[in-house]
Design a protein around this nucleic acid. Structure first.
Lengths: 346, 346
DNA sequence: CAGGTGAGTCGAAACGATTCGACTCACCCC
DNA sequence: GGGGTGAGTCGAATCGTTTCGACTCACCTG
């Protein structure tokens, strides 16, 4: 930049002002500096120099809760990320993908070494979250989605429990008495299997636990709890077979995600069970699943774009030095054709 | 860091050496510096300072070819990104997501202002690619996937044409004479519709064009070309209806992606056509689509993880100052149950 | 005409590290 | 004992900006 300034016949500071504009500059000077930059093939202020001086790198870290492929197999997360990226982009901030730090505590990860102005953590586990520790050590503002936010950080949640209670009451009002549930994983690396009710209390992931808590709040005991290994159709199929084959003979299955519910429906079809005549199934998220036709899930609709926008707003607030905030987004019950009256007892 | 050095009773440069280790340091000194850092709550060298001095920011930009949600609706891309992130993470490099720069030329985007050491561009358009221009202006190494690489940059491709020729020959050997094709978009913002053969020559996206070129190379004239708006099941359904309803009465449909093929199969089912008895359908990518059961696509398998690893290797080479390289990854023909003998003429 | 005003410009001081040549010694070898 | 060696440490320069107080002047006001 010094070269550009010299070539334009102005001082270094004037060149900086002309290019980045922090104070008034005469139009003539500005033009001279810009054409000098063009002639010299100067590509604009170096981000590194700017970052050092101004303390802002223009990067927001996004900590994924597991491998990317799994995180974003769920289209809802994609929409969240999409609008987050869009909004942050308008603020001149980019999104840096950071794998969940699972390595030994001593190791340096990207969280410690990459330039960042703030961190967004998705789907935080309850106890001992290394990602948050690392961010706080560096003094970075933290925004947590779907998890408990530590002191000083912002958070974005939805009312998982209340939403699930609505689903439970819906199927109960249709006459169902044997209600099963298929849950999201309790922690990374979980396999798909039937779990005991008491195991569920060890759930580290907030949405899983809250959606499970709904049964207690609704005063219903699930006849069987199947924990899925991930929010995928494949895991849903597997879980569906476990639930549908269970001795308690569930007539309704509350699934903690639409992808799981879709898998359960495929499992039901494979067993020649009609949905909803033989078994009612509910989802969670409100995804658009055209290939599931003719079925349309009865589910809870979440607005992914709104979540992304809200996250961006929370990030901006912290970046601007404002106080942390805790936002809860509304969700809506969506009636589909996968729930119906309980079958008459045999 | 100066404080830490003072507290440990060593010079600033020694402290730097002890923490970042560029030259031998006695174990005792190192220990002293580290404990001083711990006592003072020093979180390690500032990334911005380090980036300025060393010229490396630890960030690799990834330019998406459209909104994220569309880019990654395709699970293949997810797997690519996953292994790319993993490998680059091992090199201490993070991945920064950069929306495709569509804005007016004058505007500054993240590509111009974010710290980066290299840029990976997915699915490049042929002429006038602003992303690449911007990267080169900044003097950043560029790796291009699925596109033509400009002078000085590396590229990763697959042999789209040859792979598609295999599919065409496969269905031809089954006796099919009326072969339709459903293509990927020609450019962003394209809508789903039937196109004339001559329109196809304007295709800006390399994979679309190369897979289409296969017909010429195989000496086959497609009886109808349907261009899809995106690589999604929904677009595939729409395109499928257009192709299946076409007067030329295709008995085989070559689809440029598995998601499109899946959509076409759903369209066929909706029209009470059996696959492959009434119509044969092929895909491209080799995705795992459990919900398509009992159908398994006849398709071309691509190894997403291998692509990601290869990209990372190309990035590393350029980062190390080695010469650019052009890599073409192998693909494999996968026989499924969606292709069969052509129906006897009525 | 003196004094105030404010737009425009300049100098110089950070920002926080890395890096490299030079320096200090303790040690070894002949 | 002198000279060579090399591990360990130090100083100082440097990376490329932004920012802020100070300075210049032309212009306006009373």
């Amino acid at each position: 930049m010094a070269d550009v300034a010299a070539h334009a016949g102005v001082s270094l500071s004037t060149a900086s002002l002309a290019l980045s504009g922090g104070r008034p500059i005469s139009a003539r000077t500005k033009e001279r500096v810009e054409s000098a930059a063009r002639e010299l093939g100067y590509a604009g202020p170096s981000p590194q120099g700017r970052a050092l001086r101004s303390g802002r790198s223009g990067v927001v870290g996004l900590v994924l809760h597991q491998e990317l492929a799994r995180s974003f197999r769920d289209p809802l997360n994609l929409r969240v990320l999409d609008s987050l990226i869009e909004d942050l982009g308008k603020l001149g901030q980019g999104v840096l993908l950071i794998p969940h730090p699972t390595r030994a505590a001593g190791e340096q990860t990207l969280l410690d070494t990459a330039p960042m102005d703030a961190v967004v953590v998705l789907r935080v586990q309850d106890q001992h979250e290394p990602a948050i520790d690392a961010a706080r050590r560096r003094g970075l503002p933290v925004v947590v989605m779907e998890g408990t936010a530590p002191e000083g950080s912002s958070s974005l949640t939805i009312d998982d429990t209340e939403a699930t209670v609505q689903l439970i009451n819906h199927v109960r009002s249709l006459g169902h008495a044997s209600i099963a549930t298929v849950t999201l994983p309790f922690r990374p690396e979980d396999e798909t299997r039937i779990v005991e009710a008491r195991e569920a209390t060890t759930t580290a992931w907030v949405p899983t636990r809250h959606r499970l808590d709904a049964f207690a709040r609704a005063g219903v005991e699930p006849c069987v709890i199947v924990r899925a290994s991930a929010s995928t159709v494949e895991a849903g199929v597997e879980a569906g077979h476990l639930a549908l084959g269970h001795e308690s003979g569930p007539t309704a299955i509350i699934c903690q995600s639409d992808l799981l519910a879709a898998g359960v429906i495929l499992a039901a079809r494979a067993r020649a069970l009609s949905v909803p005549q033989d078994v009612s199934i509910t989802g969670f998220d409100g995804l658009d699943l055209p290939w599931l036709a003719p079925h349309r899930l009865t589910t809870i609709g979440q607005d992914g774009a709104a979540k992304g926008h809200a996250l961006a707003r929370l990030v901006k607030r912290l970046l601007d030095g404002e106080a942390p905030e805790h936002v809860s987004l509304p969700v809506v019950f969506q009636q589909g054709n996968t729930t119906g009256a309980a079958p008459a007892s045999p």
